[in-house]
Design a binder for these strands. Structure first.
Lengths: 214, 214
DNA sequence: AGATAAACTTATGTATACATTAATGTTTTT
DNA sequence: AAAAACATTAATGTATACATAAGTTTATCT
């Protein structure tokens, strides 16, 4: 991979800190503190934070700082509703543009998913999440639409906020998410695969089928 | 409005410069130059540019700078496809959550739209665009979904890149866009209004009806 | 004591000097 | 003359000092 500059380093590091639960909702991410932790100056930290705010992962109070958004039930509904529908769109588009190689990629992920040991344990959970992410963002990529992919990635990450903060066992609460598993992923992959062969059938019906998705 | 800091000032100013055609696709927006023009230091300019890049309005080449994305026919298709579908989603959501006041707001915009003088002239064109923006982003707001609204706003703006750069007369090329006018806006508003009264009818069919949209 | 105002604290906002590097032009070598 | 090595340039990338303002504490007045 090409060499990363400090801003990118900071960006990745901050995300990592968040995912590792170093912060809770409402917590401010102090520029000085982060700079100190990462042993770089405030500038790249500040820029990375600005990026995260612009992308909607952090909220910001003027002259006060960036903070972890406080999730609310209403916001959760919004995120999951948006994600569900956007993923429906990308899946529909993927169904049109996916090539054999793509389908194989998805099936390989499903195999890996089946082999995750101790899905209950923290380690197994993380492994599962990583595969799950690859699956969903993989389909987003297969839509061959930069914009849909971007929105998909965003809502996916944003929805994960809830999983990380609220659903530390990855079992309950988060609407729909707990239903995801190999069997759903197989269904989705098959839907995409089939649609790929029967191109004459309109996108709308495909969207209908792949809407189970999430 | 609350006081804006220099970063926000720079953000607005840069967008204004872009919309006023000070740059063409591929042009680099030089930090020093902008700072000089706006008579502020590089820092807020740089942050504003970073924001625009993070939001996807500008592209960036590392250690080279931020530049106006070079639009391609393929990218245009992606943008308009994304926008059409996302706007369909927001409109469907708006149809569920819009209140009387919202509907009135839309009708008022349509009236204003009808009264735009010299829609052919540059001035009239700008007036029309402003109203059009209010209409589309207004519906996005009525979806009462922060995320859908965000994606909607993004794809709307991104699609306008094409209108500004390629379709300086606002007549041809840009798929769908030229078809927009009071009559379409009336149709959309009516669809939202009706769906608002007949809540029992599913979202899917509503999405179908409002998909003309764009 | 309670309310108001002044001072303080702390983190962000801004300017600026300096470092780095991608791109380009120039020289040298073959 | 073409190619490689070197030097220049011009912009971004980074660090840091200082300015500003939101929030908090302390002091003052009634």
């Amino acid at each position: 991979m090409r060499k990363k500059n400090l801003e990118e380093f900071a960006y990745d590091a901050i995300i990592k800190l968040i995912l590792e639960n170093h912060f809770k909702p409402g917590d401010f991410l102090l520029e000085t503190e982060l700079a100190d932790t990462l042993e770089i100056s405030r500038t790249p930290v500040r820029n990375a934070l600005g990026q995260l705010v612009a992308e909607g992962f952090l909220d910001k109070k003027k002259k006060k700082g960036c903070y972890i958004p406080s999730p609310t039930p209403q916001d959760a509904r919004h995120v999951f509703y948006a994600r569900e529908n956007i993923e429906g769109l990308t899946a529909a588009s993927a169904a049109r543009y996916a090539v054999d190689e793509d389908i194989q990629y998805l099936y390989k992920l499903i195999e890996k998913e089946k082999n995750v040991t101790n899905p209950g344990e923290q380690e197994g959970k993380m492994a599962y999440l990583k595969i799950n992410e690859k699956f969903h963002l993989g389909i987003a990529r297969m839509s061959r639409n930069k914009y849909l992919e971007q929105y998909c990635r965003h809502s996916f990450w944003r929805s994960h906020t809830y999983i990380f903060f609220f659903d530390s066992d990855y079992t309950g609460l988060t609407s729909g998410e707990q239903k995801v598993g190999p069997s759903q992923h197989i269904e989705i992959t098959k839907a995409i695969e089939n649609r790929n062969e029967e191109k004459e059938i309109g996108r709308a019906s495909c969207r209908e089928r792949v809407v189970l998705y999430v």
